[in-house]
Structure formats: structure tokens, C-alpha cells
């Protein structure tokens, strides 16, 4: 009895263990095996030979890979800031009491509920040049056929993808900002108003400093999500024309299935660092801001 009680009284020290155990089995163990593969020429079938860092060298010499790095970063540079800016503006807009607020909030969040792959297919149907919904709409309203292929033009297509992505996930960013806004005590704003601060000044000096935590969450999850973009591109352009809108995640998948398993895990590690660096920088920066304020 004594012993049992003693054990129970110690148990709380090990509460992280069940989660960590499960995580080790289904994530860390395969991960370590995968990292090991990145140093081999494993093709998914025959015996793997150790090749050192050849896969990494190969990666930086590959045209298509470098283009994919460019596409991925370009996408993230477009998508992550836009998601945050629009998410914040949406949140400011909805941070008032009005009839139907929760309905509006639900509606704006709704697109994020749906799998990006299926959403991508729906958008493809809407946006498809020549025969999509928007095209038909423009044609029947203006009477003129629009002869411009926005998904077939590589420099244009990437921005179409960015817009669709921002459209789908802006609700998610908004909700987190909204939560942050609602936690700001009203007295602060009232005090600001008494001091004669304008709306913009209040946002700059009262709202923003109080929002560091939600900003941190949004910035970091959006960086991670944007740099790992996959399904929406598959549905909208399939990476084309050629490889011009292919992202690194798609490249990794295609290489992994295309007999280059070892190589693809090496690329996945590179992608990990491409994600890690901006996340680390923004984390440090925002923490510093947090302390300053």
C-alpha cells in the first residue's frame, strides 16, 4: 500500500512519457532511418550503398532542384506575409460587436475546413482558362472571350496559387488574431482615446505590442505551411508548365517514387533547414520585441 502510494505520488514526473514513446515509435525512429538513407544511393529496391554527401552536392548542381527552391521561396514570400496581413485586417474588421458576427467568422473560416486537395480541384474548375467558371462568367457578361491563360504562364501561375492559398487559409490566421484582439482589455483603448491617439496610432502603440504571442504563432505556422506547400499546386497546375511551379515538397515526392529514395531524403533535410532558418530568425526577433515591450 505504502509503496503503491509512493509510486503514484511520483507518477506525475513521467506524464510526458506516453506521448514521447508513441512519437518515438511512429516518428523519430522512421525519421532517423530516413536520415540514414540520405547518405546512401538507396533506390527503394536494391541494397543501399553509402555515398557520403554526394546527394547534397548533386542537389545543388541540379537545375530543376534550384528552380524548385526558387519557386518554394517565392511562394512563401508571397503567401506568408499576405496571410498575416489579411488575417490581421480581417480580425480588426470583425473585432466589434455586431449582429451575425459569429456567422461571419464561421463563413470566413469555412474554406480552411476542407482538404486543400479537394479545394484545389474546385478552384481549378473555377479558374481553368477557356472553360472555367470565371472565364464563362466574363465571357457572358462582356460578350468577349478572354484569351489569356493565367495558369499556363509560369510567372503568372505562381501568383494565382498564392492567392488561392491565401484565400483558403486566411480564416485560420484571422481567428488567432481575433483571439488576441479580444484579450486586450478595453481600458487600454479607452485610455488611448482620452490621450487623443488616432485609430492608427492606437493600433501601432496599443494593439500591436499586445499581439506578439498571436503574431508569433501565425508567422511561424505560416512559414512552415508555406514552405511545405504541396496539395494546392498539385491540384491547380501539377507543377507545370514544365517544372516551373513545382515546389520542393513535390520534387521530393516525385524523386522518392522515381527510384531516388536516398536522394529525396537528402532533399527533405535541405528543406528542413530552409524552413528552420526563417522560423528561427522570426522567433528570435519576436521574442526580442516581446521583451522590449
Amino acid at each position: 500500500m505504502e509503496l503503491k502510494n509512493k509510486i503514484i505520488s511520483k507518477l506525475h514526473n513521467f506524464m510526458i512519457l506516453p506521448a514521447f514513446l508513441l512519437f518515438s515509435i511512429f516518428f523519430i525512429y522512421p525519421l532517423l532511418k530516413g536520415i540514414g538513407l540520405s547518405l546512401t544511393d538507396y533506390d527503394g529496391m536494391t541494397k543501399a550503398n553509402f555515398v557520403g554527401f554526394d546527394n547534397f552536392i548533386e542537389f545543388f548542381k541540379d537545375h530543376r532542384a534550384m528552380n524548385d527552391v526558387k519557386t518554394t521561396i517565392l511562394f512563401a514570400l508571397g503567401s506568408a506575409p499576405l496571410l498575416n496581413i489579411f488575417g490581421f485586417l480581417y480580425a480588426l474588421l470583425l473585432d466589434r460587436k455586431f449582429v451575425g458576427k459569429s456567422i461571419i467568422r464561421t463563413i470566413i473560416y469555412l474554406p480552411a475546413v476542407i482538404s486543400p486537395l479537394i479545394m484545389g480541384y474546385i478552384w481549378y474548375f473555377i479558374l481553368q482558362p477557356k472553360r472555367g467558371f470565371i472565364y464563362s462568367l466574363i465571357e457572358s457578361v462582356s460578350g468577349n472571350a478572354l484569351d489569356f491563360n493565367w495558369l499556363g504562364n509560369s510567372s503568372m501561375a505562381i501568383w494565382v496559387i498564392v492567392i488561392v492559398n491565401v484565400w483558403q487559409f486566411v480564416g485560420m490566421t484571422m481567428v488567432i488574431y481575433l483571439a488576441g484582439l479580444q484579450a486586450i482589455p478595453e481600458e487600454l483603448h479607452e485610455a488611448g482615446m482620452i490621450d487623443g491617439a488616432s485609430y492608427l496610432q492606437r493600433i501601432r502603440y496599443i494593439t500591436l505590442p499586445m499581439m506578439i504571442q498571436p503574431i508569433k504563432i501565425n508567422v511561424i505556422t505560416n512559414i512552415i505551411g508555406s514552405l511545405a506547400v504541396f496539395e494546392i499546386i498539385i491540384a491547380l497546375t501539377d507543377g507545370g508548365p514544365g517544372y516551373s511551379t513545382e515546389s520542393l515538397s513535390i520534387y521530393i515526392m516525385r524523386k522518392c517514387y522515381g527510384s531516388f529514395t536516398g536522394y529525396s531524403t537528402a532533399v527533405a533535410i535541405v528543406l528542413f533547414f530552409i524552413v528552420l532558418i526563417p522560423v528561427y530568425i522570426s522567433f528570435k526577433y519576436l521574442n526580442k520585441k516581446n521583451v522590449e515591450m
Binding site: Q128, P129, N149, L151, G152, P241
Partner: peptide
Amino acid sequence: FNSDFLTATYDN
């Protein structure tokens, strides 16, 4: 060719 050569699908 069709002007949407690059974006049309098999089904189209």
C-alpha cells in the same frame, strides 16, 4: 493547337 494547350486536361 487549342489555346489552352498547357492547362487543358484529358477530360477536357
